[in-house]
Design a protein around this nucleic acid. Sequence first.
DNA 1: ATAGGGTTAG
Length: 565
Amino acid sequence: MFIPFQLLIPELSKSHQTISKTKQLHALITKTHLSLDPFYATKIVRFYALNDDLSSACNLFDEMPNRSVFLWNSIIRAYARARDFPKAFGLLKEMVRSETKPDSFTFACVLRACSENNDVDGLRSVHGGLVAFGLGIESICSSALVCAYSKLGLVGVASKVFKRVADPDLAMWNSMISGYGYCGFWDDGLKLFNAMRIVGEKPDGYTMVGLLSGLADPGLLGIAKGIHGSCLKNSFDFNVHVSSSLVCMYSRCNCLISAHEVFRGLLNPDLVTWTALITGFSQSGDNKNSLAFYREMNMKDVKADPVLIASALTASAQLSIVGPGCELHGYVLRHGLETDIMVSSSLIDMYSKCGFIDLAMLSFKILPHEDIVVYNAVISGLGSHGLASEAFRIFNEVLEKGLRPDESTFSALLHACWHAGLVNEGKQIFSRMKDEFDIEPETEHYVHMVKLLGMAGKLKEAYDLVTTLSEPVDAGIWGALLACCETHGDSRLAENVVHHISENKPEKSSYWVMLCNIYAKEGRWDEVKKLRDGMTNSGQRKTPGLSWITGSNSSVTSLMTAEMP
DNA sequence: ATAGGGTTAG
């Protein structure tokens, strides 16, 4: 097939071309010397980018003697979208030195790349660059800056940029409102929303989504309902993004009844909305309903994608029933999703949480081993089955591959050591994590260390480790230590720990119950009675779930109701 | 002539 010259312009005007047509168009403009005009090349670079053939796009770009802003922007955009940020950055630097100067669109594109790449330093330097080109208060650059800074959590800097813009347009208002939303400053978002209406700017769907995205606490349900009402009044509930945000927001606020209500009001919920609902139920602990909704969705003509499959697999893992997980595995195989990172790591996690570590390993073995997330899933699976040496073998594979372990990798390894009672190995990996890999231990790492040391009877060492932390120490860490005191019947240390906890979190009655248990073991019933009366008087009779610390709370309940000798 | 900045699940 050959493209005649008369068809060049019509073919270039299309929005998409196959890779073979793109190559023919490329050849055609080279032969006719139309490649001297960057207009044609710009179109073809776009086609290459849409076909994920960046090296051909780059060859064409390199051949071009004249490069317009359009041509530069399209090649930079192509690399930025393909997440080859070093190349996109390099091209921007080259462009700055060239005769064609970057414009606001060039910078907007690179700014987005910085935020997707979590590159704060890059962001600051691009910010400096665009100011040098006189684009510091230009609206496209400013809204891109506000978004990029807030996505990286620097909402203060974002708001400084915002305040310098004299007459913000709708996109600018929206960027700042959703910026506050990402960072959880819903109240600042709401203030800005009101300010926006005072100056007569009409909000749109983006504005509402931005406002909703900041709400993630059951305590904010009143505010949430208010914003929901305002969405209804303005008919924004017909916007799929707004309605899906409403479903997510109610799920985050743990109000699944409202999430479900909003969902049921939709004529045609899309995949995103289904996922919001299914994930919402799973995250609130109602995994049965989560899977029921997944089945309901399958009856309709909505096709699940990797994100949804991963979420449904997580729900099955939490139920520890392998049946639905196997069904999902079948779907994964039929649709060729088994190499997707999210899917495969949840599949490994599901099989190991359901007790089938061999099936987890089987899913792992067929994968191209190149992502730390998948390794973390398998290390954590092996560890929770007591197979610590296997877990360490996989860890060494990570290092041999040149992959960088992250905080979850170490969390999984420490957990593995705890399961297998490998105190020295645990201590060793804990220091390597800091010294060799430069990862600061977080609460979960300390909890694992305390459990590891405590279970081995090294209560004093565990206590010393906790006291090296700066106050306030997370109550979960003290709780883990207290559980170890309970196992070993060390009431002196337990009293000390409870004292530490009650300085920060006096309302946590479960810790008092554990101390109560320790006294009971020692037969100090007078102490038990004192504690129990004290708790009854302060209305703290109910014991919240302790399973995450002790593995079971049945002994606690029986003690609290038992008659004392 | 050309595309190019702001939103949603995980």
